[in-house]
């Protein structure tokens, strides 16, 4: 009986601590995965994905958090329609065969109550690889316009596109890519 009570208490504590993690839904209008890559050796090309969805779990006091983002691969935008068509083609993102890019965190490191890095699984072209993003800023508070509780963060990391099987035109178009994530999310009611 004592064992049952002890176990029940433990489960209760765990459930309580889980309940303290607030759940947030990503604001797609302010959540954009950006990237930059060397273009033909001349310059750095910047682009972003325009359509995202996902959830955050965040409890800075308990140094606990998670993020899961789904990106519409076809929403890639470099400000140049013809190049975007090429990026959507089998040469690069192959969006017809692999319409979704996902990032799911596996751990979040904190310094006091501030997140410092997010490690997670990035799935691109159906290939999943671990990626670590350095958090360059994070904040929570009341949104000044709609008065909802919101959280947001910026994070940056790097990948080699060849690791995900996107190997066309290397090194003419760079292999190394920087990923810059800007995320905002509203607390679930």
């Amino acid at each position: 009986m004592r064992k049952v009570l002890a176990l029940s208490s433990l489960v209760g504590v765990l459930l309580t601590s889980v309940a303290f993690s607030d759940s947030y839904t990503i604001d797609p209008g302010h959540t954009y995965p950006n990237f930059r890559i060397n273009h033909l050796g001349f310059s750095t090309m910047y682009g972003r994905f325009g359509t995202t969805a996902g959830k955050l779990e965040y409890d800075p006091a308990a140094q606990r958090g998670s993020v899961a983002i789904t990106i519409d691969a076809a929403s890639v935008n470099t400000g140049h329609q013809e190049r975007d068509n090429a990026l959507r083609s089998p040469d690069f993102l192959n969006v017809v065969e692999f319409p979704e890019i996902t990032f799911k965190s596996t751990s979040v490191d904190f310094d006091a109550d501030k997140p410092t890095s997010i490690t997670g699984d990035l799935t691109l072209m159906g290939v999943t690889k671990p990626v670590t993003l350095t958090v360059t800023g994070a904040n929570c508070g009341e949104h000044p316009l709609n008065k909802k509780h919101a959280c947001g963060f910026d994070a940056i990391g790097a990948i080699k596109r060849s690791d995900f099987g996107i190997n066309y035109a290397i090194p003419t178009v760079g292999d190394h890519m920087d990923l810059m994530l800007e995320v905002e999310a509203f607390k679930d009611e």
């Binding site: 089998p90 192959n94 065969e97 692999f98 072209m125 159906g126 290939v127 060849s162 099987g165 190997n167 066309y168």
Partner: peptide, 13 residues
């Protein structure tokens, strides 16, 4: 020469 010998992921191409 164009694709290398990489077949992962196994795309249509």
């Amino acid at each position: 020469l164009i694709n290398g010998v990489q077949f992962t992921p196994l795309t249509g191409t």
